[in-house]
Amino acid sequence: MNIFRLVADLMHLGSILILLLKMFTSRSCAGISFKTQALYLIVFVTRYLDLFTHFVSVYNTFMKIFFISSAGYILYMMRVPLKDTYNKHLDAFRWEFLLGGAGVLALVFTHKYTVIETLWTYSIFLEMMAILPQLLQLQRTGEAETITTHYLFALGAYRALYIVNWIYRYETEHHVDAISTMAGIVQTALYCDFFYVYFTRVLKGKRFKLP
């Protein structure tokens, strides 16, 4: 564990807490993509199957359980108590392509053809693209509530810090995982446009609005 990874994980944890705060305070899930949230649940469940086979640390186990359960709870919130505030028409990304595409990539690139290993690889490729429905929704609306942009910023920062963590691990432990690194760079690149608007508008106290 290094400082970059620790801060990244805490940003990830923080992003989920911000999302829950948004839902609780505004009693609404407007602006949030159900598809992206559902993809994250699939990502966590397929990646953390090793909860049952491989113990890393109490920290690691706690975080895995938190990510799976919070993702499930968010879906429940969006489907049951906040159902009326969800706009299906704005959440129009064809996510079948993401689910299928990640499957193909996993079968091609997996390190080993075992169930756990292939599902792990699937989760990496699915996470790489899971934010796309959310970004499409943002593009369609052209603007977003400030708290939603803080959520997205924390999520993007978590990904960016993981890249720094891999560079650090490469320097210190000579560890590198080509799949994680490649997918992580693509995933972080998807946030570029968002980061630009976030830094030039939201951090200067203005509303998030696409040009």
């Binding site: 080993k112 792990w120 691990r169 995982d177 799949i179």
Partner: peptide
């Protein structure tokens, strides 16, 4: 390389 090196990550 079996890819398990980084599986202590989340």
């Amino acid at each position: 390389q079996d890819g398990h090196q980084l599986k202590d990550e989340l």
